[in-house]
């Protein structure tokens, strides 16, 4: 069990590395730059801006910079919000994301286990309930498939 756990973690490293690299170059290929606007800035200003953010360096150099920063947890300054670092902006939003995710998983687990057990006992009931359900609450709609998913898992194992 522990070996599987560590294997998974180790496997995630090359995956994250590949994802980060592909994203970096995808953004580079995409048209436009971070300072495009309705009112185009003069070439001189654009040059200054690119220098300020080291965007005048070669792609390779920028890539190495980006990856080094990433490993150190430094994602550099925000282009959109001068004066803020990307790491800081993520850090501001993360607690809220965690809180939302926590409640979502909590609800999904409780409802899921309950509905899953129900599904195991009365197979027909759950399949009838879902498509006919009049409930517009998104929790219900999104969690019932969850519930069946988790529930069926439990049921299969036991």
């Amino acid at each position: 069990m522990i070996t599987i756990f560590f294997k998974r973690i180790l496997l995630a490293i090359p995956v994250l590395f590949a994802v980060a690299s592909i994203t970096f170059f995808l953004i580079k290929i995409a048209p436009g730059g971070p300072f495009d606007a309705d009112k185009a800035v003069s070439p001189q200003v654009l040059k200054n801006l690119n220098e300020a953010y080291n965007l005048d360096a070669s792609n390779w150099e920028q890539y190495v910079d980006y990856m080094t920063g990433l490993v150190q947890g430094n994602l550099g300054p925000s282009f959109r919000f001068p004066g803020r670092s990307v790491t800081e902006m993520i850090a501001t939003g993360l607690p809220v994301t965690f809180e939302l995710a926590f409640y979502a998983i909590l609800i999904a687990l409780v409802m899921g286990v309950f509905l899953g057990v129900l599904a195991a006992l009365k197979k027909k009931y759950i399949f009838r309930f879902y498509p006919n359900g009049n409930c517009n609450d998104w929790h219900m709609r999104s969690n019932i498939p969850y519930g069946t998913l988790i529930g069926f898992n439990f049921w299969n194992k036991s």
């Binding site: 001189q44 200003v45 300020a52």
Partner: peptide, 10 residues
């Protein structure tokens, strides 16, 4: 100052 990269020096 050019290195500030202001977008409104003009």
């Amino acid at each position: 100052t050019a290195s500030l990269g202001s977008q409104y020096p003009d």
